[in-house]
Write a protein that binds this DNA or RNA. Structure first.
Lengths: 230, 230
DNA sequence: CGAACCCTTGATACGCTTCAACAAGAGTGG
DNA sequence: CCACTCTTGTTGAAGCGTATCAAGGGTTCG
């Protein structure tokens, strides 16, 4: 876990080197291959789980063995930063989508580090707070936006966070490449793959985007933003 | 904020008395009358906000001035435990539904207390983690359950948490009293008041519940649980 | 009494899912 | 190499669930 990764995990303030050194001693690394489970909602959560590298999906394993993605995560990011504090089980299942490096930090160890370095507490609280904000945003979208609005919002977010392609800053025409299967994107948006397919066609017909396989060119940001607005 | 209230806020472990005394010095009390705003998503969040007593609603104020409830809160509980750590604004608006006692704890003060008492950190992290779990549960319900299932789950939760009425433990026939307007319940479930009305009639016709104004008698817990299951 | 709420009920409309069929690529084995 | 299967995405037709619109009844309050 590099300094840059910690910055992503904890927010803007960097992690002090002495704290990082002490944390490093407790971290438990493991590699997870695509398709394998990172953790299950059945096992008790004793450690905070960080996705150092790779892509993973959070969701619930269905009774029939299939997996229903609720949120997809691109490392470095937290996979589960909250369950371990509750002395309960994980709330979701997590599976790797690509080869992943996963780090576990036992909450007991973290508690010890917190005793030595109280400055770490606000950073952890901030990163958890960031997660709360993200989740509330998701809830807001699910409650008030239709499928088109949710997809527009999803596209814009992809567009802005690292999605932009070449030269032209953000004038127009950003290119978004879909790394995941379209059915997984659909699952995140709580729609069926069929509906997503139709949405892509609709937006293309309206001239808002251009679609070519797994590459989407965003042509008209303002109108897309209007669709994404409540 | 009594010891019992702190227990509700922070999880099972009680708050140490010396910590509580130091916190108390920084807490800022204010009373909020029904209909008034507790905070707005426009103002920056400098303090954690606790609802010590009363009922409040979290949601978004619409452009036309009306308020769309996304979650209703019954004190003692957190109103916003995460925004203050992010140096940003509140993410939602909060309005009082009944006369409320609201407590603000400046995050700067809390940070100072954390330096003196690192034992507080895991408790704060646990309470925030609890909130994350609640939100994930809400998202899960919104994504995978239909209106009937969400309402059934809502009823069962109300039924178990303090809702039970008289003698018969949980054999059957718990009575749930709706404190809030039905349109607010509907808003929380992301359905229209009309649909909620129809749902009540349907479930009554099926013999699962009995409805009399704002009193709902739950007659058949198992079948209700079956509806609430994904 | 009328006005302003709230809840209910019905008719209708729309968004999205479901089901079924089909095309296109990837892997496999003859 | 081709035939075969498995998976993924696409497209169309039909149906369900929920929203919307409109009307009416029950309270409460001036």
């Amino acid at each position: 876990v590099s300094q840059a990764a910690w910055k992503t995990l904890l927010g803007r303030t960097p992690l002090r080197h002495d704290i990082e050194a002490q944390l490093r001693a407790h971290m438990q690394w493991r590699a997870v291959l695509p398709g394998e489970a990172v953790f299950s909602h059945l096992e008790p959560a004793r450690e905070l789980v960080i996705l150092a590298q790779g892509d993973a999906a959070l969701g619930r394993k269905q009774a029939d063995g299939s997996f229903h993605t609720e949120r997809s995560v691109h490392g470095p990011a937290w996979l589960d930063a909250s369950s371990a504090w509750l002395e309960g089980a994980h709330l979701q299942d997590a599976v790797a989508l690509s080869p992943c490096q996963v780090v576990g930090v036992p909450s007991s160890a973290l508690q010890a580090v917190l005793l030595d370095h109280p400055a770490l507490a606000p950073q952890l609280l901030a990163s958890q707070g960031q997660q709360v904000h993200t989740l509330i945003e998701v809830i807001h979208d699910l409650m008030h936006k239709d499928a088109e609005g949710r997809f527009a919002a999803w596209l814009l977010q992809r567009c802005s966070s690292g999605g932009s392609d070449a030269s032209g800053d953000d004038a127009d025409a950003a290119t978004v490449t879909l790394h995941e299967r379209k059915r997984d994107i659909a699952a995140q948006l709580a729609i069926t793959p069929e509906t997503l397919s139709r949405l892509l066609r609709q937006l293309k017909r309206k001239g808002l985007i251009d679609v070519l396989g797994y590459t989407v060119r965003v042509l008209d940001v303002p109108r897309l933003r209007a669709l994404a607005a409540v």
